[in-house]
Each structure stands twice: as structure tokens, then as C-alpha cells.
Computed example of a mutant assay.
Amino acid sequence: MSTPFASAAPYYARYRPPYPREFHALLADRFVLDGSQTVLDLGSGPGTLGLSLAPLADHVYAVDPEPAMLAEGARLAEERGLTNLSWLRGDDAAVTRLCLPRIDLCVIGRAFHRMDRARLLTDLDGVLAPRGGLAVVASLHRPGAPRPAWPAVVEEVRARFLGTARAEGDGQEAREDCEDREDCEDWAELGDLLAKSPFSRVETHQWDRTVRRTVDEVVGLQLSLASSGPAVLGDRTAAFETELRRALLAHDPCGTYVRTLRTGAAVATRPRR
């Protein structure tokens, strides 16, 4: 059965911000990616991480529960001429049942908070190579950081179409300084969880970057979210797009919307013996 992400898949691939270049450089250095490694992209979506790592790996296994996301990733791989990816339907509960080869690196992007994390970390202990590890990348909130005014315009339109609870991310705690509340990770909790896992050797990194979007890109980002994708909006999707564009341009006719995003990465390996 498909999920709300099915209708959001093409928007997700096009409008979600890419991961920082510093994160890819960190992985290449930390795991000595030289084209010989096997990578697992768990909760891959349309392969936002897996597609970028494919040129540095021997093979990438992209695993996601949503067929539409996998189909979008496969389309993008073909478009880019990448042939060393396998697109597998599954979730974090299926890691030990996918008959994967020994994995050198598992990457999880903006999806770890949706998983049964303690169980997954135990399962990965049997999947990752002795010198392997995992890297979790997440959107982080920025406590006390100044916030631009235009996101409030987006939230007001979302609330009118979706109701207040849905507009705030299906009832999740509102974190006004985190762009996509669906994807926010509790950074302290993540570090504690990894430190208690088989992969207790943990290093963390954070990067801030400024993102500039057009009005169409702001609208597309909203349609990439499970809480406001076309499956949720239904026959009101076109009206939502029209009203959001109108409200954004009324707020700022320049049509460029700037925001600073914070991304965190936790790299975890087994302790040295």
C-alpha cells in the first residue's frame, strides 16, 4: 500500500535541498571511498544520498518502503547514466531480510527519526563490515536564530488548507527555526542513542548554509512533504499552489525567499579494540 510520499515523490526529488558538499567530503575521507565500497542508503527516498555516492562506490543499495520514491530514483539514475544502484523496497525492519552483501557504509538521510532506531542499530551490527560504519544526516533547529518573515506566510496558507495541527507537521512540536518539521532530529537524543549502540564511537558535525528559493521552489517544497503533498490536499492541490504563490508574492514581490538551514551529521563506528 502506498504512503503519502507516493504523490510527493517527484516534488521530493526536485525541491528538497541537497545535502551539503561538506557532508559528502566527510564521508569520502572518513570511509576512504575509492570506488570499491558497498553502500546502503536506508530510507533512501528518491536516492538523494545514494545517487551522489554512486560515483564513489562499487555498488549502492537504495532501500525505501515507497515504490514511487524508488521509481523516481531509478529514473534519475538512468538519466545520469548511473548503473551501480539497486532499488529495493523495504524499511528499517527488513534490513536483515534483504540478503544484502557485507556493507561498508550505511547512510540514513532525514529518515532516522521515523525508524525503530534501537532495533535497527542492533541489526546493522550484523550487516556492516568489521571496519564499516553508518552516517546519519539530519535537519537541525537553530535555537535563538533569527527567522525570516516569509515562512509565517507559508504556515498561514497551510493552516487554512490543512488545519492547524496538520500544518505544524501532524501534531509534532513546532520548531520555528527548523525548516521542515517533519525532518527535524533531536540532536542530543541521537548522540546518546548512538553512544549506547554497537557503534559507540561517534563524531558529529554541523553546517549552516544559506538557501535562496524562487516562489515555485517554495511551493514545490511544500508539496514534497507527507503532510501537505498532493495525496493529502487532493482536489485542492491546484488551489493550494495558487493561493500560496499569491500570498508569497504579496508578502515579497521580489520572488526570492532566503533561509539559513542547519544540517548535522553523526558518523558512528564500532569502538577500536
Rank of each mutant, 00 (worst) to 15 (best):
M1C: 13
P4H: 05
F5T: 03
A6D: 11
A8G: 04
P10A: 01
Y12W: 03
R16S: 01
D29H: 10
F31M: 08
L40V: 04
L40I: 03
T48W: 00
L51F: 04
A54P: 07
A54Y: 05
L56Y: 06
H59F: 11
Y61I: 08
A62Y: 01
A62F: 02
V63H: 03
V63C: 04
P65A: 09
P65G: 09
E66H: 07
E66N: 13
A71R: 12
R75S: 13
A77Q: 06
A77N: 08
E78D: 14
R80C: 08
G81Q: 12
W87S: 12
A93K: 07
L100T: 07
P101A: 10
I108A: 07
I108N: 04
G109R: 00
G109K: 00
R110D: 12
R110P: 02
L121S: 05
D125E: 13
V127S: 06
P130W: 00
L134D: 01
V137S: 11
P146L: 08
P146A: 13
P146F: 06
W150K: 07
A152R: 14
V153W: 01
E155N: 15
A159C: 08
L162I: 06
E168H: 15
G169T: 03
D170G: 09
D170M: 09
E173K: 11
E173V: 14
E176A: 15
L190R: 08
D192H: 14
L193C: 11
P198K: 05
P198V: 02
P198H: 05
S200V: 09
R201Q: 15
R201M: 13
Q206E: 15
V211D: 12
R212Y: 08
R213A: 12
E217N: 06
V218G: 05
L223F: 00
L223M: 03
L225Y: 04
A226W: 04
S227Y: 07
G229D: 01
L233E: 09
G234E: 08
R236D: 14
R236A: 15
T237F: 14
A238K: 05
E241V: 10
E243Q: 11
E243G: 02
R246A: 15
A247Q: 10
A250K: 08
C254S: 11
T256M: 14
Y257C: 10
V258M: 10
R259N: 14
L261E: 13
G264S: 03
A268K: 04
